[in-house]
């Protein structure tokens, strides 16, 4: 069985989730081919050559020097013809979200995304914002799949040695219908969540903007920073510099005290490294409790004001 893993890289560094994808592909078992597209990739192909895989294919083309959805699609279609993979695998990164569906529609094969495990061609993914899991199977031959962050560990990659092959593609410029500017970061933020020791984090469970004072009061007595889930930022209640999660900061404080956060995976990836997770949620089945050390079931609007009083009296 042939497996194609598409590698993502930036500034000469392989994406952590591409390594996890290799580990996952090795676990599925078969002839794993890694595909690297683009310039400035020597260190990536070097690293891949130390993995126990069939080979690495390197494609460089002047029309696709950096990521471009149309260029990637065209290149991968040509590779697929040669490799004939049963599985086309990536990490479930933002880049994969961008090009994998294009391949799915073009090849007329399913894209089963964001998997937490694969067992005998049964794929498990989270649904309902991480509250439930679903087993999905495919009725067609080849499938496109992507792995959720940390579903596999790069530490489990089997080492070995594997060859590098350059692969020539010819691209028709008229198929490339979008051009991308250089990636950039928004101006530096006023808060430094990443080095905070203690974090009080608020989710949509605070219910309205006025209630954020509860979080700030609690943070003040504890000497903590305040962070937020995405909906709180989207609503304009707190600035985006306070957002924790896949599109915000990744934090690992001594204490992550979450108030009314449900625990969707895109939030959890940003905080699951915290040493202690104390979560308050009124829903006993909230997914945040899966990863919490302490799960307080209750209404934060009742608990926190009393807690603040008590802490002030100590």
């Amino acid at each position: 069985m042939n497996i194609l893993v598409i590698i993502e890289h930036k500034n000469g560094v392989m994406h952590r989730m591409s390594k996890e994808a290799i580990a996952g592909a090795q676990k599925i078992g078969g002839n794993v081919t890694a595909l690297v597209i683009g310039e400035n990739s020597d260190s990536i192909t070097d690293e891949l050559s130390s993995f126990q895989i069939e080979k690495t294919l390197l494609v460089t083309n002047e029309k696709v020097t950096s990521y471009n959805v149309d260029g990637y699609k065209e290149i991968i279609l040509q590779i697929v013809k040669v490799v004939n993979p049963e599985f086309i695998i990536t990490g479930h990164t933002y880049q994969a979200r961008d090009f994998m569906p294009r391949l799915s529609a073009s090849l007329d094969i399913p894209f089963i995304p964001d998997l937490v495990s694969v067992e005998n061609s049964s794929f498990t993914k989270q649904i309902m914002n991480s509250k439930l899991n679903a087993s999905i199977s495919s009725s067609s031959g080849p499938v496109l799949i992507s792995f959720q962050s940390a579903s596999f560990s790069e530490e489990n990659i089997s080492k070995g040695s594997s060859p590098l092959e350059k692969f020539e593609v010819s691209l028709d410029a008229s198929n490339i219908r979008s051009t991308a500017d250089e990636p950039f970061q928004e101006s530096a933020s006023e808060v430094d969540l990443e080095s905070a020791e203690l974090i009080v984090s608020v989710g949509r469970g605070i219910e309205k903007e006025e209630n954020k004072s509860i979080a700030f009061d609690l943070a003040e007595v504890l000497g903590a920073e305040v962070s937020a889930s995405r909906p709180v930022v989207d609503a304009g209640w707190l600035p985006s510099s306070r957002q924790v999660g896949s599109s915000g900061s990744t934090v690992s404080p001594k204490l992550y005290f979450s108030l009314g956060v449900s625990g969707a995976i895109q939030h959890v990836v940003g905080m699951k490294g915290s040493k202690n997770i104390l979560a308050i949620n009124k829903d006993p089945d909230a997914p945040i409790f899966e990863i919490a050390d302490y799960a307080v079931v209750g209404d934060l609007l009742d608990i926190i004001p009393k807690l603040i009083e008590k802490l002030k009296d100590l």
């Binding site: 933002y94 991308a180 990636p183 900061s249």
Partner: peptide, 13 residues
């Protein structure tokens, strides 16, 4: 486009 970890990118379509 939003990229990971606070990065962005403009694309022209």
């Amino acid at each position: 486009r939003e990229l990971e970890s606070g990065w962005f990118q403009w694309v022209t379509l």
